Simulated assay, not measured.
Amino acid sequence: MSTDDRRTRLAEAAIDIIATRGIRALTHRALDTALDLPTGSSSYYFNSRRALLAGVTGRIVERSRADFAAARIEPPAARAAFDSDSIARHIAEWVDRMLTERGNHLIARQALLTELHTEPELRAQLAQSLFSIERARELLHTISSDPHTAAADFVAVLEGVVFDRFTGNRSQLAPGSAASVDQITNVLSVYLTAR
């Protein structure tokens, strides 16, 4: 196993610890125990708590970029071609897939955004990792007179949807279901139609 593979394995285990037991439970010892490694193994790859948190941040960002690239949400060429309901459904299916396949990543990301308030560089990486304001601006430029503001607002709506599904009123709604996709679609469609 390469060094990069080991770091990825450690980062994934750290994400699971944060998501299931909380940010304070993440220690080198807990990570070694979770992976049944000799004591001190994880500190060889991440020699401090900050290095460990940076490794987790890097893994979440890396995976988010790969997922975002795979989503292939293309902006329409003209306002007449902008179908709010269809675009909302496509984005909702992508968000629901993230909720289903990367739930621990999303929970850990939320915890880290709060924890890293004294680490602006890491926090900025996480804040910009899940949704792209630039891509949202491309998507909304045909229907908004102020695509920059509309894009930032749309990303805020998406962030709110994800947060709500883990800790809010809709935390009982199971991802991976038609009801889940419909709920997200409805929220996004209302926003897009109002533009």
Rank of each mutant, 00 (worst) to 15 (best):
T167A: 12
D83Q: 14
G160K: 10
L26D: 02
Y45P: 00
D96E: 04
G40M: 09
R21V: 03
F154N: 02
E159F: 15
A151Q: 07
L122W: 12
E101V: 13
F68Q: 12
I23V: 09
T142L: 03
A152F: 02
P76M: 00
D32H: 11
R29I: 08
Q125A: 14
D164L: 14
W94F: 09
H105Y: 14
Q125M: 13
R79A: 15
R49H: 03
D153R: 09
R29Q: 11
E74N: 01
I133H: 05
A30E: 06
D96M: 04
E134C: 02
T33L: 15
R97M: 07
R63E: 01
L158G: 06
L158W: 06
L113Y: 07
E74L: 02
T167K: 10
A108F: 07
T57I: 02
A30I: 03
A70V: 10
I107G: 05
L140F: 02
R21K: 11
I143D: 02
E138Q: 09
V161C: 10
V61P: 00
A81L: 13
T149F: 09
T142I: 06
R89M: 08
Q110I: 05
I91W: 00
I91V: 05
T100K: 14
V155R: 07
P38H: 12
E62H: 02
E134V: 09
G103T: 14
A151G: 10
P76W: 03
A150H: 04
E159M: 15
S41E: 13
L52Y: 02
G103D: 15
E101I: 12
L122Y: 13
A108P: 13
E62W: 01
H148V: 10
L26T: 04
G22W: 08
S84E: 08
S42K: 05
H90F: 03
R102Q: 15
E119G: 10
S144V: 07
T57S: 05
R79E: 15
A25E: 14
